[in-house]
């Protein structure tokens, strides 16, 4: 096997090549739009995967952070006169702060209790967004001003394809880096056994909190990107169903696999688009495909595919 394949960044390089070559296959800007959606969702999923796959903690309210990021770039420029890029950073800081404050008590919970606590957090954020009509436009959402950087207006699906792809590459690079750092090793340790990790001197609470904050920042940045790309936000983005969708992406793609999150996002975003030809059977097929892949690919798509050639050898 060639040496370069073993390199940590091999999958990153492949991803970059895929991103660079995909537009050659696109006949219209609709495909840019779908691909950009995949990159945005993948970014959020990678963050969630750090928390779920690497540190072994669950979050069913992650869309809450996605919503904070999305509404930050909506509310900042419209109501407060803060430029969009600054709003994006403020959104990320707010998400991190909320994750830190709420994470401290709730990450002491385990299993179902943690799932319910994070679920509650997500529902609360969605509730605030829906009811603070004066700021957020209520259940129908609000428009988002275009991103303008030094006089350059970011609009059009192809522009956003490259912006979101850039964000995804950075996000992937950081997540891949994490594996070989002491933090990454600590995450893996507390994933395998919290008690063993504690005995080995890992500050369990601190690392859990760290994973939660990292995941929140990823989701917030993805939310901001989507809101700026759409020029519109609504509370669905912070809703429970979106949280479930994110968890599905992570699990479907493969827990703990960075590339898996991208594949999971790609499947969940593209499948409904590809299945529209089946009209009313669309949902039936979507559900069926997910059930089948969960039964036959328990580890998720990427870890499963990764096992295949090995078995043959």
């Amino acid at each position: 096997m060639p040496r370069w394949v073993r390199h940590r960044y091999a999958s990153l390089v492949v991803l970059a090549v895929v991103i660079a070559l995909l537009p050659l296959l696109f006949p219209s800007s609709y495909y840019y739009r779908v691909a950009a959606l995949v990159w945005v969702s993948a970014l959020a999923a990678i963050g969630l995967n750090i928390l779920m796959g690497k540190a072994g903690q669950v979050s069913l309210g992650h869309a809450g952070f996605f919503g904070i990021g999305a509404y930050a770039v909506a509310i900042g420029p419209t109501h407060l006169g803060v430029p969009p890029l600054a709003s994006l950073l403020i959104g990320a800081v707010l998400s991190a702060a909320l994750a830190y404050l709420v994470g401290r008590p709730i990450l002491r919970l385990k299993g179902h209790y943690l799932a319910i606590a994070t679920l509650g957090l997500g529902v609360l954020v969605a509730l605030v967004i829906t009811t603070e009509i004066r700021w957020t436009g209520g259940p129908d959402g609000m428009p988002v001003k275009k991103l303008v950087v030094f006089g350059w207006r970011a609009s059009g699906a192809d522009t956003w394809y490259w912006i979101t792809a850039g964000m995804l590459l950075i996000g992937t690079w950081l997540a891949l880096n994490l594996d070989d750092t002491p933090t990454g090793r600590a995450f893996r340790a507390l994933h395998d056994s919290e008690i063993a990790a504690r005995v080995a001197g890992v500050h369990v609470d601190r690392f859990k909190l760290q994973a939660f904050v990292i995941a929140a920042v990823y989701a917030s940045l993805a939310g901001s990107a989507l809101a700026l790309m759409n020029g519109f936000v609504n509370p669905d983005q912070a809703g429970f169903l979106h949280s479930v969708e994110m968890v599905t992406m992570v699990v479907l793609g493969g827990l703990g696999s960075v590339i898996g999150s991208i594949v999971g996002a790609a499947v969940l975003i593209m499948l409904p688009q590809a299945l529209t030809v089946f009209q009313e059977y669309e949902h039936l097929l979507l559900g069926f495909l997910i059930i089948v892949s969960m039964i036959f690919m328990r580890d998720g798509i990427v870890p499963m595919l990764a096992k295949l050639p090995g078995r043959r050898a």
Partner: peptide, 23 residues
């Protein structure tokens, strides 16, 4: 392991496949 890296690579290529089918 060595192998799993290669396989991750293999999996990454799978992203491109459905996208090209869509077109």
């Amino acid at each position: 392991s060595k192998q799993s890296h290669f396989k991750t690579l293999f999996a990454a290529a799978a992203i491109a496949l459905p996208a090209s089918m869509m077109s």
